[in-house]
């Protein structure tokens, strides 16, 4: 069977979706291993699933409703302690709108 090739454009596009910036070396390694994996995934085509419903959950789930009550957890300081950058008790992030 012909191995599915992944083009450079595809890998660039997928990296954008994944929000990753891969070095040349890393890109080559990942590309090589991804191709092997995708090749292996194509084994699934052998299975006739025409009459099968996809199973996204193991057990039948129903919505869980509860009262819309505020449960106060005084964790503000602990949460801020983990933030990479804090300013005036707020998490500091780079500008979201280009100037």
């Amino acid at each position: 069977m012909m191995r599915d090739r992944i083009s450079d454009e595809t890998i660039e596009y997928v990296a954008i979706l994944a929000k990753l910036e891969l070095s040349r070396e890393e890109k080559e390694k990942i590309l090589r291993e991804m191709e092997k994996m995708l090749d292996y995934f194509s084994k699934l085509k052998e299975v006739d699933t025409s009459m099968i419903e996809p199973m996204s959950h193991l057990f039948d789930l129903s919505n869980v409703f509860r009262e819309d009550q505020i449960e106060k957890q005084k964790k503000g300081e602990e949460i801020l302690k983990n933030a990479p950058q804090v300013k005036d008790r707020m998490i500091h992030v780079p500008g979201t709108i280009e100037e």
Binding site: A18, L20, M34
Partner: peptide
């Protein structure tokens, strides 16, 4: 910031699986 953070913070196996998942 997102891209550099994720690229520097994750190891190769993790990046590979994220790439396969996104693919």
């Amino acid at each position: 910031m997102y891209k550099k953070t994720r690229s520097q913070g994750f190891g190769t196996e993790v990046k590979k699986r994220i790439m396969i998942g996104s693919f």
